[in-house]
């Protein structure tokens, strides 16, 4: 098993003809994902060719793509000015799981789009995230498939390349993953840590979880408290930004320490108080996971 995406995933790529969209469509197809449709307004009727002779039909609207191909998952590579609209279009078309890769969507627009998605009962991952991969089954987004391998560990993270770092180390140590999820670094995101932990709890194959957080906000603390009460599986945690000065944003829009809230110290304390094993360096994540799996 895996969470959110697997072999049943039927993917529509919004922005399939763009530079990022076309490049990553090829990569996703290569990782075994069933890419069933693309959407670019004005290019309906054209075809996007993937390797091994695969042909992905392009539609003008997500609605048509869903009706014609039975797409159930969407990934968004459209520019920031149109991305909130693209998210709402996917939700309106009945897409159950929407992954927004786009960086730089205005916060107020995201706040509207998120409410819209929730009302329609869809799930949004991101925006400004690397997406997710269930190794050997499906990949939606931009995580490099070659650093992953199937296995018993669920990975959830607010960051992109730091997630690659951790996953790469796990894979090199021979420890595979059920699903690796990047939830994104923006202040307003669709799927948070608790949503992912809850999905990993319900996934039979996930035996242990890696949770990688950052300074800013209180999501990690809430997730740690939730895990203690509800999870019943071991968690290894890491927090980036221990040396970040207060009041300065560190690239990720969400990574800013404001007032007294959201420091690395506070998050690490909350992890420890709630039974999460804390890695002080990324390299320790693998050792702690080995311990928790008894290997």
């Amino acid at each position: 098993m895996a969470v959110f995406i697997d072999t049943e995933t039927r993917l529509v790529v919004q922005g399939i003809t763009g530079r990022d969209g076309s490049f990553h469509t090829l990569q996703m197809a290569e990782s075994g994902t069933r890419v069933v449709a693309g959407v670019t307004p004005g290019k309906g009727g054209q075809v996007f060719e993937i390797e091994n002779g695969g042909r992905v039909p392009i539609f003008n609207t997500v609605d048509r793509a869903v009706k014609e191909t039975g797409a159930n998952t969407s990934v968004i590579y459209v520019p920031p000015a149109f991305a909130a609209g693209a998210i709402m279009e996917a939700a309106d078309a009945g897409i159950a799981f929407i992954v927004a890769i786009t960086e730089g969507i205005p916060v107020l627009e995201m706040s509207k789009a998120n409410a819209f998605v929730r009302d329609r009962g869809s799930r949004l991952l991101g925006p400004n995230c690397p997406g997710l991969i269930s190794p050997g089954k499906a990949k939606v987004g931009i995580i490099p498939a070659q650093i992953t391998t199937p296995g018993p560990v669920g990975v959830v993270s607010r960051s992109g390349t730091l997630t690659y770092e951790a996953v790469d180390q796990l894979t090199r140590a021979g420890i595979g993953q059920t699903t690796c999820i990047g939830i994104g670094g923006d202040p307003i995101i669709g799927t948070n840590f608790i949503d992912c932990l809850s999905a990993f709890r319900d996934d039979r194959d996930t035996e242990a979880i890696v949770m990688i957080g950052e300074i800013g906000g209180t999501d990690e603390q809430e997730a740690a408290t939730w895990a203690k009460e509800n999870l019943g599986k071991p968690v290894v945690g890491f927090i980036a930004g221990q040396t970040a000065p207060p009041g300065r944003r560190m690239g990720h829009a969400g990574a800013i320490i404001s007032g007294s809230s959201g420091t690395a110290e506070e998050k690490i304390r909350s992890f420890k108080d709630n039974g999460v094993a804390v890695a002080t360096r990324p390299v320790e994540i693998t050792d702690l996971i080995k311990e928790s799996l008894g290997i």
């Binding site: 960051s159 390349t161 730091l162 980036a240 930004g241 690239g251």
Partner: peptide, 11 residues
């Protein structure tokens, strides 16, 4: 990457 950059500073 912002997360990796922060983790590098921490290291």
């Amino acid at each position: 990457g912002a997360g990796l950059a922060m983790a590098t500073m921490d290291l």
